[in-house]
Nucleic acid binder design. Structure first.
Length: 788
RNA sequence: UGCCCAGUAGCUCAAUUGGCAGAGCGUCCGGCUCUGGACCGGGAGGCUGGUGGUUCGAAUCCACCCUGGGCAACCA
């Protein structure tokens, strides 16, 4: 489905939708869902931005029936050196064209400068920020490296008063660029480089395109962005994967700038994978390079992935939207095949582009059994049979017409089903034609074909039922309109021009633009000039909005038709597929070998005290090396384990639970922060050990303990989780489950044995995890295979 | 030798949070009296990166390893 209305398109599930669903359920933000698209106005938008636009505005549309939704267009204009109003206009134009409306939610970060400043004052007063007077170089030096901690700046401990005074002077313009900066006071030894006292403000004596010379103090992204989101009450702040690290500062700024009561409903940042398209480049600098070096014709060159380029090429906005919804929004980096994009274009254009005939590389054909003056006006349908539309146009057939030069071969290969000497083909919408004579010039080049039509085949069928394999498009020589066709191919010859050692321009495809002088059937004159059409058997085209004139038509190829005959450009051949499979197999084998080689002793990295503990766990308690090392390597965890051991002396099950279950639920917390202590933990393990509860039941109890604490046995009683070991008590439940799922039972008996898991799940659910799993499994098998 | 993220069909992604490994694209075969392309039907394709562990049951939890990517701008 493709329409001009973005809200009519179906949403595609992704993890961000899951998060929003969850927040709506929990009421985290009440019924609000507010997203934003935050470009910096320092360049033109491309298809990668479109993915973000479609995601953010798509959420606004998709949740409109369930929530109070908004999507803000925010210009993140905090760097006066690179930004300009022309870019603002170009971006607004692009978002509009894509079909989205930000209503009255157009914002500029530069409008928030006063608030950024006030928040900074707050941070200074709290002791969370300080003015640093180190040089740019020194700051870098002091920051350390990835494996060496940074060292604090000598200015780090300036008094609040001094900081305040200095910061005011910075704003007042009393210093030169780079003399001072404002930094957050976080942790110079953090393993996360980004947390080593990130810069908040720098001095920049540069006029801002909106604020003029009002400010000489400009905020950094890491400081400004969270505040922009907070100021606008954004709920879900979506950005690309490379901002993953920045989320730490994002959260820090929120926690330290906002009031306590604002924190629960504060904006949160989520990262998704950016769009990487094959055979093109997408970075601003690379695009700019192509334009400045005149390697393409400007930002709107139809070969470029820019919005303006795609627009000029003729790509409909609805096709871009559906493409962006089809590509995955995930956290795994990926490169999307250009074929996917082309498929999305064809899918969109197929039901909307009327068919016409055009010959791009004309070869003249003369019908010897047709009168010179006779013209047969044929009523030809604009639409193929599978499209539910019925509009026709008159197409003139006369003695001389053009066909595609490539549709004729003098000595055709085996599977060639087009025209050759002595062969008969079907002329689209017209007669069967047989080639009888080939005319050449002195160079031997074919200049003309001569032959005859069968007058009894005007409606494309023959009275004797014969049916040629090939169908050719054609255009009457006397009626055809000469025109220029511009065929575009991928800009680069390799899928990853930006990821190679050589400069990316080395890989430019010299044939990315191919200009042809063709002839067009006259009925196109009756179509709107901006109507996208299909030239039959060739592709989708539209008149170039910049250069096409009524007396000199120029058509851009939007996308060619899929071509299974001439060796697919996008699809892979069987051999290529097999090759790819082999390569993958080899990669796996290699990885397997290396991963085995790289194995280390789990106790290797322990310090002396930890090693003693490890020895104790392993040798005296009989815990296996890996688990013993895992616990010994985490002092708090080991303490917890030992305390639990005092309460219930069963080393092995306790170790299993500590490592496999407890560690899994811990995430970033330490055991000390949990609402359950070692005694309760030990009690839980005892209950499982004594088979009072099943592991599944224990899982539920454990979940409750981790969330709210409490007494394990009390929870078991309250939830009635005591394990059911009684065959007669369990059998009815099992029979009920089987009775509720007759289809699955049939499929199981048919051989789909994997369904045993499904039945187990049902039984465990029905009993809230109380059923003894082994018994349940046995009984299920008994019931499912009665005769056995 | 740090920290973070990700590895599921050839490709892009799913998998109701521990319970049937699926979809789209591509590919192959068949159908369609008029596009070699559109449309319809069907097939093949998987050791879920690896090894061990926890569990009645693991793509999912734990440990270690392997592979790829990101992070050390007074850019965003």
């Amino acid at each position: 489905m493709s329409t001009s209305d973005p809200s009519a398109e179906r949403p595609r599930e992704n993890f961000i939708y899951d998060i929003i669903d969850e927040d709506l359920d929990q009421g985290t933000y009440g019924d609000r869902v507010v997203t934003r698209f935050p470009p910096e106005p320092n360049g033109h938008l491309h298809i990668g931005h479109a993915k973000s636009i479609v995601l953010n505005f798509g959420i606004k549309h998709d949740y409109a029936d369930r929530a109070d939704t908004q999507c803000h267009l925010r210009f993140d204009d905090t760097n006066p050196k690179t930004e300009s109003p022309e870019y603002v206009e170009s971006i607004k134009d692009a978002v509009n064209w894509l079909g989205y409306d930000w209503e009255d939610h157009e914002y500029h970060a530069s409008d928030y400068f006063e608030q950024f400043y006030r928040y900074a004052i707050t941070l200074i007063k709290q002791g969370d920020a300080y003015v640093d007077s180190l040089s740019e170089e020194k700051i870098r030096e002091y920051r350390g490296t990835v494996d060496e901690p940074g060292t604090p700046s000598p200015y780090r401990d300036r008094s609040v008063e001094e900081n305040l005074e200095l910061f005011c002077k910075m704003k007042a313009g009393e210093f030169e660029d780079g003399e001072h900066v404002l930094r957050a006071k976080i942790d110079m030894s953090s393993p996360h480089m980004i947390m080593r006292d990130p810069l908040l403000f720098r001095i920049l004596h540069a006029p801002h395109y909106r604020r003029g010379d009002e400010w000489c103090l400009y905020p950094m992204y890491d400081y400004a962005h969270p505040l922009e989101d907070a100021i606008e009450d954004v709920t879900h702040s979506l950005c690309t994967l490379e901002f993953d690290n920045n989320r730490r500062v994002y959260d820090w700024v929120m926690e330290h700038c906002l009031d306590a009561d604002e924190i629960p409903a504060r904006p949160r940042q989520y990262e998704f994978n950016r769009l990487n398209l094959g055979y093109t480049v997408m970075s601003k600098t690379k695009l700019r390079h192509l334009i400045e070096e005149d390697l393409v014709d400007g930002w709107d060159d139809p070969r470029l992935p820019t919005i303006s380029g795609l627009r000029r090429r003729g790509v409909p906005p609805s096709a871009i939207r559906s493409f962006c919804r089809e590509v995955g929004v995930t956290r795994s980096q990926s490169r999307v095949q250009i074929g996917h994009f082309e498929h999305a274009l064809r899918d969109d254009l197929n039901p909307t582009a009327p068919r016409v005939m055009a010959v791009l590389d004309p070869l003249k054909v003369v019908v010897t059994n047709w009168d010179e003056d006779e013209v047969d006006w044929i009523n030809a349908n604009h639409w193929p049979r599978d499209i539910d539309k019925d509009e026709t146009r008159p197409v003139p057939f006369a003695r001389e017409f053009y066909i595609e030069r490539g549709d004729f071969r003098e000595d055709p290969p085996e599977d060639f089903i087009r025209l050759a000497p002595g062969r008969e083909v079907r002329l689209r919408h017209a007669y069967f034609f047989t080639c009888e004579e080939v005319v050449r010039d002195e160079d031997g080049t074919v200049t003309e074909l001569r032959g005859t039509i069968d007058p009894d085949t005007r409606d494309s069928t023959a009275p004797d039922g014969r049916s040629p394999d090939g169908t050719l498009h054609w255009v009457s020589a006397a009626h055809g309109i000469p025109f220029e066709a511009r065929l575009y191919d991928r800009l680069f010859g390799v899928p990853d021009p930006d990821a190679r050692e050589d400069h990316f321009t080395e890989f430019l495809n010299p044939d990315s633009l191919n200009v042809r002088q063709g002839v067009l059937e006259p009925a196109v004159r009756d179509l709107d000039t901006d109507q996208r059409v299909q030239f039959e058997r060739q592709g989708y085209f539209w008149a170039d909005p910049d250069t096409s004139r009524p007396d000199a038509l120029v058509y851009n190829q939007i996308v060619p038709l899929r071509d299974t005959w001439s060796g697919g450009e996008e699809g892979l051949t069987q051999e290529e597929l097999a090759q790819q499979r082999r390569e993958k197999e080899q990669r796996k084998e290699e990885q397997r070998r290396r991963s085995l080689e790289g194995k280390t002793d789990p106790a290797e990295h322990l310090d002396d005290a930890q090693r003693d503990r490890f020895t104790h766990f392993h040798n005296e308690l009989g815990i296996d090396r890996e688990d013993a090392a895992t616990m010994a390597g985490d002092d708090a965890l080991a303490d917890f384990f030992e305390q639990a051991l005092e309460h219930y002396d069963a080393p092995e099950p306790l170790a299993n639970w500590t490592v496999n279950e407890l560690l899994g639920r811990l995430n970033d917390r330490t055991v000390a922060a949990l609402p359950l202590g070692p005694d309760e933990f030990a009690d839980l393990v005892r209950l499982v050990d004594a088979e009072v509860i099943s592991t599944r039941g224990a899982d539920e109890v454990f979940h409750e303990l981790v969330e709210n604490g409490g007494d394990p046995e009390a929870i078991v009683d309250a939830r009635d989780l005591r394990q059911v070991d009684d065959t007669e008590a369990l059998r009815p439940t099992i029979q009920a489950v089987l009775g509720d799922h007759p289809d699955e039972v049939a499929r199981y008996r048919d051989g789909k044995k994997g369904l045993i898991g499904f039945f187990m799940g049902q039984v465990m659910q029905a009993t809230d995890g109380a059923a003894n799993p082994e018994l349940a499994r046995t009984l299920l098998q008994e019931e499912l295979e009665p005769a056995a």
